[in-house]
Amino acid sequence: MAPLACCNLCRKFKPHLLMALAQIGYTFLYFITEASFNHGMNPHVYITYRHIVAGLVMLPFAYFLERKIRPQLTLYLFVEIFILSLLGVGLTLNMYFASLRYTSPTFLASMVNTIASLTFVIAIVLRLEVLDLRNPRGMAKALGTLVSLAGVMMMTLYKGPIVRNLGHPLIHIGGNTSVREDWLKGSILTVGSCITWSIWYIMQAYTLKRYPAQLSLTTWMSFVGGAQSAVFTVIVEHKRAAWTIGLNIDFWSTIYGGVVCSGLIIFIQLWCTQEKGPVFVTMFNPLSTILVAVLAYFVLGEKLYMGSHCHYRPVLAAVGEG
């Protein structure tokens, strides 16, 4: 009975475990991309390569495993996938990385935690979620949203006393940490990326109803999003040298980001969205913030404050000139 009960428990909490693993995957992404960007990798080139890698890796799995369940791709569906890719990759990620040029990483990491609240509000408006304040679960959802927003505001506006480091950092990731501040431009880009990210999570729920093939959808989003990012990168980056990467941290960060994050984790998120809805998926976003803060404090020796979560550099994508 014990093994059976354990299996039933794992099956019941499978989406929760998968989303927790996904956030752990994102945690390692923060550090490996920071090292890559400090090494000189252009963030927009990274986004392009990362999603091309994801598409190439996911393509054979999508083709063979979903042959019988994959719907026919109509023009309407392709346009929908194009918009979904733009919201999830081409527009959102490039705005996210670009905003790091003008604001602090702490501000950006705090603002990203509003995605769950924004997604919840949009889901209510579109009737994907029902808010019944007379029900304890409805009250908990509303209270959780308010607490989340209050926490973000506190982390953004209040730094608090510094927490002493316990010893020397185990790993040092060097790089240019200077920030060319333009808070108005940076805030607009940050808020814009959070809004489009929230819409992306919501739109996934609609698209999956018409295209219930998560592997194929992940592959399409990777290729289309990579192409969109390539067009954007060509416009903003005129140096050919930026597209050249060697067999170093730039290469491995691209492989990790493509295979694990843009491939496996996006597939997990799509599956969980179909099972539990978009709000459930975004509820786990703060977990990676906590994990990065803890690892940055204990492993990298970054400063940690009692008010704002830390003074770490989650993805120094565009802090320097890239």
Results as ranks from 00 to 15, higher is better:
Leu4Glu: 14
Lys12Cys: 11
Ala20His: 07
Ala22Lys: 03
Gln23His: 05
Thr27Leu: 06
Phe28Glu: 10
Tyr30Thr: 11
Thr33Gln: 10
Gly40Cys: 11
Val45Ser: 08
Val45Trp: 03
Arg50Ala: 07
Arg50Pro: 04
Arg50Leu: 08
His51Cys: 07
Ile52Trp: 15
Ala54Asp: 07
Met58Trp: 09
Leu59Asp: 08
Leu59Val: 05
Phe61Trp: 10
Phe61Thr: 08
Tyr63Val: 15
Leu65Gln: 12
Tyr76Leu: 12
Tyr76Ile: 14
Leu77Pro: 01
Val79Asn: 02
Phe82Ala: 13
Leu86Trp: 10
Leu87Ser: 02
Leu91Asp: 03
Phe97Glu: 01
Phe97Gln: 04
Ser99Asn: 08
Arg101Ile: 05
Tyr102Arg: 02
Thr103Ile: 14
Pro105Leu: 05
Phe120Asp: 02
Glu129Asn: 04
Val130Trp: 07
Val130Arg: 12
Gly138Phe: 10
Leu143Arg: 01
Val147Thr: 04
Met153Gly: 00
Met153Cys: 09
Met154Ser: 00
Lys159Asp: 02
Val163Met: 11
Asn165Ser: 15
His168Phe: 13
His168Glu: 15
His168Gln: 15
Gly174Ala: 07
Asn176Pro: 03
Thr177Lys: 13
Leu184Ala: 15
Gly186Ile: 11
Gly186Arg: 01
Ser187Lys: 00
Thr190His: 07
Ser193His: 04
Ile195Phe: 11
Ala205Ile: 06
Thr207Gly: 04
Tyr211Gln: 00
Pro212Thr: 08
Gln214Leu: 09
Thr218Glu: 10
Thr218Val: 05
Thr219Trp: 05
Met221Pro: 00
Phe223Tyr: 10
Ala230Phe: 15
Val231Pro: 00
Val231Ser: 04
Val231His: 03
Phe232Thr: 02
His238Gly: 06
Ala242Glu: 12
Ile245Lys: 04
Asn248Arg: 05
Asn248Glu: 14
Ile255Thr: 01
Ile255Pro: 05
Gly258Val: 04
Val259Arg: 01
Ser262Thr: 00
Gly263Phe: 09
Leu270Asp: 01
Trp271Leu: 11
Cys272Glu: 08
Val279Glu: 02
Phe280Val: 11
Phe280Pro: 05
Val281Thr: 13
Val281Ile: 08
Thr282Glu: 07
Met283Pro: 01
Ser288Gln: 14
Ser288Ala: 13
Leu291Arg: 00
Val292Cys: 00
Val294Asn: 02
Val299Ala: 04
Lys303Met: 11
Gly307Phe: 11
Ser308Phe: 11
Ser308Leu: 09
Cys310Val: 01
Ala318Trp: 10
Glu321Ala: 12
